[in-house]
């Protein structure tokens, strides 16, 4: 029955659901124009501008010591922030999706909070704490700890902006999957960690990976928040996005777009993986649902 209604929806044009041809062509045309103008053209522009002066200028820009330093710093920031955000996301999802407690919805709202805060404010708050007049500024200066306009500040700001990424992905997923399988494992004598790694993880791995991926894209690409706390010291506190800004403002367009091409490639790879991972998680969920129906 289902198979037949599914094929009938695909194969037949339901009369009243079919828009007139001119409407269909107009809207499809508009859609393609908007996507072309706003999404595809920018991607192409990155490539064209990056190679405007040829391959050698492009590779020279990317191997320039400042560019290399910026890439190293960006990698370092991602290497520190992504695992932290992931651990936080998993523990928050475990607490929220597996237990009931007072203030749960408030906690969910607070976790989402950094999404609705301007990245500039994310930078500003750390300046207020660690700046010369801030709470911890004088203390840090006394102990010769550099946080603001140094790598720790950049990491903190990045932790703030990436804060919800993994939790946001995992919480609804774990709520949907439910806790029956975990309870079954526990009732069979598995320990908490065994249950987590052998039952929970396999069920949510694609969704988790997707969250990690998006978190990484944001960590590597964050600009506003990092811009406020970094101090723009070349070779030292410039991440790749900041390096792009500096190069662009100095009219080194090939340098700016060479850096941009690296980040744009990262974005495209992220999108590809995201599409694949969402599909995989969807399949896993479907399989789980069917298993439940059979029971």
């Amino acid at each position: 029955m289902n198979a037949i209604s599914a094929t009938s929806f695909l194969a037949s044009k339901k009369l009243t659901l079919t828009d007139p041809d001119w409407v269909r062509y107009a809207l499809t045309g508009l859609t393609l124009s908007i996507i072309g103008l706003f999404l595809i053209l920018p991607l192409l522009t990155v490539l064209i501008e990056a190679f405007a002066k040829g391959w050698s200028a492009y590779s020279a820009s990317l191997t320039h010591p400042d560019a290399l330093a910026a890439m190293r710093l960006t990698l370092l920031v991602a290497l520190v922030t992504v695992p932290l955000t992931t651990v936080f996301g998993v523990s928050a999802a475990w607490a929220i999706a597996r237990f009931d407690f007072r203030g749960k919805s408030l906690l969910i709202t607070l976790i989402d909070l950094p999404f609705s805060v301007s990245p500039v404010i994310a930078g500003l708050i750390y300046v207020l704490i660690f700046g010369a007049q801030g709470w911890l500024g004088p203390w840090a200066a006394d102990h010769d700890i550099k946080i603001l306009f140094a790598v720790p500040g950049i990491i903190l700001a990045t932790l703030f902006v990436t804060f919800p990424f993994v939790a946001r992905e995992l919480i609804p997923l774990m709520q949907e999957i439910g806790h029956e399988e975990e309870e079954a494992a526990l009732s069979l004598g598995a320990s908490g960690w065994q249950t987590f790694f052998k039952v929970t993880m396999p069920n949510v791995k694609w969704g988790l990976l997707n969250g990690v991926l998006l978190c990484n894209a944001r960590a590597m690409g964050e600009f506003g928040a990092v811009s406020v706390v970094s101090g723009h010291i070349r070779g030292l506190t410039n991440t790749l996005p900041l390096h792009i800004e500096v190069s662009y403002n100095e009219y080194d367009f090939v340098g700016a777009f060479a850096g941009a091409s690296v980040l744009a490639a990262l974005a495209v790879v992220t999108l590809v993986f995201k599409t694949v991972l969402e599909w995989k998680q969807e399949q896993a969920l479907k399989a789980a649902r069917q298993a439940v129906e059979v029971h």
């Binding site: 690409g221 996005p241 995201k274």
Partner: peptide, 20 residues
């Protein structure tokens, strides 16, 4: 095209900025 819709989410804002 459907997958491309998320580009503004994934593309670092600085890149979007200089491109636009």
């Amino acid at each position: 095209f459907d997958a491309l819709i998320d580009l503004p989410f994934a593309l670092p804002t600085a890149v979007a900025g200089i491109v636009l």
